[in-house]
Design a protein around this nucleic acid. Structure first.
Lengths: 126, 126
DNA sequence: TTAGTTGCAAAAAGTTTGCAGCACG
DNA sequence: CGTGCTGCAAACTTTTTGCAACTAA
């Protein structure tokens, strides 16, 4: 099931390698001539996130930001604090570690998230 | 520097082992006879979080939740999805792993967060 | 006195919902 | 036709800010 709004949103997300907010995305779409409404952007993002086609991330200012997934598989993010560029990293050893530590405390694991913020090589003063 | 609001908030947080939202905290304080305003709860939590005396966590519904820190040192959380109980875990090997992986991608690390949600032993049907 | 704290009311900011109109099978 | 998508406006939620009263050194 793909609606017009979802196609617009996906196309715009494809041009961006870092996380974008719904509002930002809407502004860009409007700027490029699309007559889409903010509501539809939110609805499309929600549907795409539910389907696992985009990653969702809450910023510390409380907005949700979205990014097109490189893969549907489980992964974590390395986010550049300066330019926002992100790298997806798979981490089998981390998954194992998480399970082990949780078990040690009597917990079974349902889910986990890891996020690393740093500075990428292009933004480093070096 | 401790204000009356901060003392009230800390005292109430001391009675709770899981993360609580500012609104929730305010309701409890009011319920226990405190005449504190919601604004002061927010301001106190902000100050305490800045000082590193409480942990802050954003829920997926967009509210910030707070918990009294066991220690000021860096740590991660194991959160029970059912009862909300949390365990703080230190993870030296994780820190090392994060740094190593980031460097491999040309990133320097400023900060990172790991959160594991699962079910604790008391809430497991086993 | 005077700098800092308090709490109400109002404002922000982000997201969701109600609803009438459209599009399309 | 009728089901579902769209977008506007209004509602809602959480958090922040303006401000006058208050407090304590």
């Amino acid at each position: 099931v793909t609606t017009r709004a979802q196609r617009s949103v996906l196309a715009m997300l494809a041009t961006e390698r870092s996380f974008v907010s719904a509002q930002d995305l809407h502004a860009r779409l409007r700027g490029s001539g699309d007559r889409i409404g903010l509501t539809s952007v939110y609805r499309a993002l929600q549907a795409l996130a539910d389907a696992g086609d985009v990653d969702v991330r809450r910023t510390d200012t409380g907005e949700s930001t979205y990014r097109r997934c490189g893969s549907g598989a489980h992964h974590h993010h390395l986010v550049c604090r300066v330019c926002g560029a992100t790298v997806e990293v798979a981490a089998p050893s981390l998954e194992a570690w998480v399970t082990r530590v949780a078990r040690k405390h009597g917990y079974s694991v349902d889910d986990h998230t890891l996020e690393v913020t740093g500075t990428c090589s292009r933004c480093s003063p070096e």
